[in-house]
Design a protein around this nucleic acid. Structure first.
Lengths: 250, 250
DNA sequence: CGTTCCTTTGAAACCAATCAATAATGGTGG
DNA sequence: CCACCATTATTGATTGGTTTCAAAGGAACG
């Protein structure tokens, strides 16, 4: 089990520090919003779509997703969340949750009320800018998925999803290279990329047949990363971030 | 022609004031970022995907969209922009534009460098919060579209798009009730919802046949709004915004 | 008043969904 | 530790929504 003691940087601190060197005061501000700590088991629902909420969440550890459900019962997975992600940002605009957040693996979250975000914006303008920039990254990632669902076929959509997961795990999970344990079921994958589980199954098989990937139980290996990037016109958005416009640290 | 003189509030100021009453200083800060003024004709490209840019844009007047293009030449329209919208927010995270912005109608934009945003974040924390909340609304709107493309059929996707346009025009264009001039071509609609123009045409015809909409030249009328909302499980996200967490005005 | 872009329509082909059923996997309690 | 149950993965046959290809009207614009 990871040590989450005060000595250790949280995944969020780690990520923000990757962009700019946080001042001690800023570090402490992040610590404050990450004070709470709640555990969830795989399948647990953190918040449900439509429920009143004024809280935001930080992923300390684990893997989750947010989703919407249609009247027909169908589900669309909107986004995957990894360590260091801020979730539930719709709470900053509404008092009702816009998506259901579900734990995929067992995980640890911090939660804080949106009023804490207000205080942070007032006292730490650079953190506000950093949060804004992070939000923008997320927004562009969502655009990429929109493009994927709107304009590419099943295989390209799945390739895109696998590559994005890989790219994000490489950031949060040291040691991930080309293999990772894919915690999603084929139904989940289908709900993320807009296909049925049956078609996901057939497409994964086909990808394996073509030598693009390998599957051994839950462990998935990207064998031909370059070919897959070609296949779905993947763009990695998780590199650097422009920080030259940020206000000075508080 | 609209009077855009200094006496008149811009669409952005109008919108922000709808959420909270801006202080004179805040009003002036918005005025400063909206100082520039550039005109574009229908079809003009404001910025092109991949070009270096550190600027953001505010729509003063008109109608635009941002899009991505695939290697294959196909296009995905990611978002429609109306008066009061901030565009090009990917500039806050990267120095390269992530989407092409194209004028649909003739329009007037203000543009400003991201450094101006940094100054604004430092001096006007409440505006920063407001920008953050606005961004969140946008993000949820994008989630809704993702759900639409991923999990609904052609007619529901088009219904969703029409309803969203209607809902947004009602905010920015006083006088819009159930009719509006649809400035998009059927190709554009297809690129927005992930269908071919041929299928868009057939589906629009079918919707007209069912009495859901009426088309007279460019003017489209939503005849059965309730039935269309049912059809695509539409959620209007452009109502109120939670402001209780905002820091006080500067 | 021609040219270009946009809309409309038809027929055939195809990708993915649906329906249905069987194998594999994983977790649980006896 | 193994039988049992529930969930997940896999496979086949069929259907259907959408695309593709092709071409003809309409509308808009210089």
């Amino acid at each position: 089990m990871l040590d989450l003691g005060s000595q250790m940087r949280s995944a969020l601190q780690e990520r923000l520090n990757h962009y700019v060197t946080l001042s001690p005061a800023e570090m402490e501000a992040i610590e404050r919003i990450e004070r709470g700590r709640r555990r969830f088991a795989p399948g647990d629902v953190v918040v449900r779509e439509g429920e009143p909420s004024d809280r935001l969440y930080v992923v300390r550890q684990g893997w989750l997703h947010s989703s919407n459900r249609l009247k027909t019962g169908e589900r669309q997975i909107l986004r995957l969340h990894f360590a260091g992600d801020i979730m539930g940002t719709s709470s900053v605009a509404w008092s009702e949750t816009s998506a259901t957040i579900t734990a995929v693996t067992s995980c640890i979250l911090s939660d804080f009320p949106r009023t804490a975000l207000g205080r942070l914006f007032r006292s730490y303008p650079r953190l506000a800018a950093l949060f804004y920039a992070t939000f923008s990254v997320e927004n562009v990632a969502m655009s990429d998925r929109l493009r994927s669902l709107g304009r590419t076929d099943g295989m390209a959509r799945i390739a895109n999803l696998l590559l994005e997961i890989l790219s994000r795990l490489r950031v949060t999970e040291p040691g991930v290279d080309h293999s990772f344990e894919l915690k999603l079921t084929q139904t989940d994958i289908g709900d993320a990329v807009g296909l049925t589980k049956v078609h996901v199954n057939r497409t994964l098989k086909e990808m394996e047949l073509r030598g693009l990937i390998k599957r051994e139980g839950r462990v998935t290996t990207i064998l031909e990363e370059r070919a897959m990037i070609e296949l779905c016109d993947f763009k990695d958005r998780h590199g650097e971030v422009a920080t030259d416009w940020f206000p000075e640290a508080a």
